[in-house]
């Protein structure tokens, strides 16, 4: 996965709690400054659900919210740690302080 990978972005914004599709995209817009295309968003949701990284959250009406599973939380943490490691190394090479 990459920092702008649709699946990573969806997992990231779901870390705060269950959201439905539109709210996920709004949270992504807030995070990175632009919305995902509808195809990318629902394609990512479909893949994440198939991998059992997200699951439908129950009892919240027609909007079909989803939430992270424990496995999804674990995968997200691994991905973010890997990205942070790469970011730290890259910034160090550029001579940019991370503090």
């Amino acid at each position: 996965m990459q920092a702008n990978d649709a699946q990573t972005l969806v997992l990231c914004v779901l870390a705060d709690g269950p959201l439905h599709g539109y709210a996920i995209n709004s949270a992504i817009e807030e995070l990175v400054g632009e919305r995902l295309g509808p195809g990318s968003l629902y394609g990512a949701l479909t893949r994440l659900e198939a991998k059992e990284l997200i699951t439908p959250a129950e009892g919240q009406g027609r909007q079909r919210p989803v939430r992270l599973t424990p496995k999804g939380r674990q995968v997200l943490e691994q991905e973010l740690r890997a990205m942070a490691k790469v970011a730290r190394a890259g910034l160090k090479s550029l001579g940019v302080s991370t503090n």
Binding site: H20, G21, Y22, N25, R35, G37, P38, G39, S40, L41, Y42, G43, L45, T46, R62, Q63, R64
Partner: peptide, 26 residues
């Protein structure tokens, strides 16, 4: 069945620029 309604609403809001992405995902 799972995402059709939500996808349709998002696509309507996003306009024709979202159509190529929609076709690729399909």
């Amino acid at each position: 069945e799972r995402w059709g309604e939500a996808l349709e609403a998002e696509t309507r809001a996003a306009g024709w620029r979202s159509w190529p992405g929609l076709i690729l995902t399909m």
